[in-house]
């Protein structure tokens, strides 16, 4: 199944938006806080994710025959630490208010209060991934963050001990970087 690479999972869902609701949904999404305050940050396992509302398909010109969508669609794309079931569960558990505010504009949305129904809705709207690549497929979000922190800490340390005598260096290192748990 091409939905995974290493321990990472590529999810895509497309949900039909109720008539006339696309502008409201779009506005809500655009006003969501970003960065650490994004509701997705609460999940802790999301590397990169996005929501987009599409109203129609892009026409390429002849010889393509122009076609139009009958509904707007809410597309959710996420690259996260698997497995899928835990992730969907986490959305319902950790961001139920936002999930309802977003997918509540979609046809057939059961609400996040019932995790089983929510999972069913997500999976019914899932579109399989054909090809998925990551530069670091085996690293979880936690591992990436810990590694970035360790790199910064060690860089600061290395700079601070330049010119120190060997005994002091050894003491400083073993104090700052004891054996990992």
């Amino acid at each position: 199944m091409a939905n995974t690479s290493g321990q990472a999972f590529a999810l895509m869902t497309a949900s039909p938006v109720l008539g006339g609701r696309a502008p409201t949904l779009r506005t809500y999404l655009r006003r969501l806080p970003t960065g650490e305050k994004s509701p997705l940050a609460r999940l802790g396992t999301t590397h990169f994710a996005r929501w987009l509302v599409i109203d129609d398909l892009v026409y390429q010109g002849p010889p393509q025959v122009r076609e139009h969508l009958k509904s707007s669609y809410l597309i959710f794309v996420s690259n996260f630490d698997g497995p899928l079931g835990s992730y969907i569960d986490a959305i319902a558990r950790l961001m139920p208010v936002e999930a309802d505010a977003i997918w509540g504009h979609c046809v057939g949305y059961p609400g996040a209060a019932d995790p089983t129904a929510f999972a069913g809705f997500v999976q019914r709207n899932q579109i399989d991934t054909t090809f998925f690549v990551s530069a670091y497929p085996d690293a979880s979000v936690a591992q990436v963050r810990e590694s970035l922190r360790a790199r910064e800490r060690f860089t600061n340390f290395a700079v601070s001990v330049q010119g120190t005598d060997p005994a002091a260096l050894r003491r400083a290192f073993t104090a700052r970087f004891p054996v990992p748990a």
Binding site: M12, T13, S15, P16, L69, N125, T129, T130, A135
Partner: peptide, 15 residues
């Protein structure tokens, strides 16, 4: 590139 993917969409979900 951090993450990238391609999906062939053969139809859109019907709810």
């Amino acid at each position: 590139i951090h993450y990238a993917r391609w999906s062939i969409v053969t139809g859109l979900p019907y709810n």
